[in-house]
């Protein structure tokens, strides 16, 4: 496989803050249009991994080879500009109003373009966060525990939406989460990380088009993943 078929490769990526080591020699490769998940206990450094991939921070050791063209980043908190409307928040990252209209329709927020974030529910704000990540047609989308603060119903809805958008827009996506079920319902490849300092414990290739949150097939996989995740470090 040539480099151009990858979105990024990390090579023995490590990150420490003073004496605190957060990531320990993480090596991950991501192929175009793939869906991968990085699962681990809370606080193990998953967010840091995304920050290193996106370039927000530099590694202490190791490196990131980037082959992606454009990046979308769905942050854990919605990080919307509070004094700007939904449309204006998207205009912040692109000037293409046609695309903005299209993407808002795709995430179901067409009727809320002129609302301010404070007038939207948490789920809706995350949709805007998602729309902003997708509006520039990125080839790589990073999702940092985006469903954490949402109730189950909204979460399932949003997961379905992301999967649908993935099929339509054909982007590669990295989901970071501590919830195995989210990982299984959205990704083909799952990396399990240990607790801090995070190392890759295991890699699961599901190879299936996983979709339904409660599909019984996945309960078995989940059990195995949970066991590993709870005991691995």
């Amino acid at each position: 496989m040539e480099d151009v078929d990858f979105l990024f490769k990390t090579w023995q990526l490590s990150k420490s803050y003073r004496e605190l080591q957060v990531l320990d020699s993480i090596s991950i490769e991501m192929v175009r249009k793939d869906s991968i998940a990085v699962v681990g206990p809370s606080g193990c450094g998953k967010t840091t991994l995304l920050r290193l991939i996106s370039g927000l921070e530099a590694p202490t050791q190791g490196c990131v080879e980037r082959y992606y063209d454009k990046l979308g980043y769905v942050f854990q908190e919605d990080r919307l500009i509070p004094w700007r409307t939904v449309v204006e928040n998207l205009l912040f990252v692109t000037t293409d109003r046609g695309k903005i209209e299209k993407i808002l329709k795709m995430v179901g927020l067409a009727d809320f373009s002129n609302y301010y974030p404070s007038h939207l529910s948490g789920g809706m704000r995350q949709r805007v966060n998602l729309a902003r990540a997708l509006v520039k047609s990125p080839d790589l989308v990073l999702l940092d525990e985006p469903f954490q603060s949402l109730d189950l119903g909204t979460k399932i809805e949003l997961i379905g939406d992301v999967n649908r958008l993935k099929d339509t827009l054909q982007f590669g996506c990295v989901l970071v989460t501590h919830d195995i079920r989210e990982a299984v319902s959205m990704s083909r490849l799952i990396y399990i990380l240990s607790s801090r300092p995070a190392r890759v414990l295991k890699k699961f290739d599901l190879g299936l088009k996983s979709r339904d949150f409660f599909d019984p097939v996945f309960l078995e996989i989940e059990k195995e993943l949970s066991f590993l995740s709870n005991t691995g470090g």
């Binding site: 996106s54 927000l56 980043y73 990080r79 500009i81 990252v93």
Partner: peptide, 12 residues
Amino acid sequence: SKLLEVARVYEV
């Protein structure tokens, strides 16, 4: 600073 990071990521 969180908003500034958003700006960095999207090259605003």
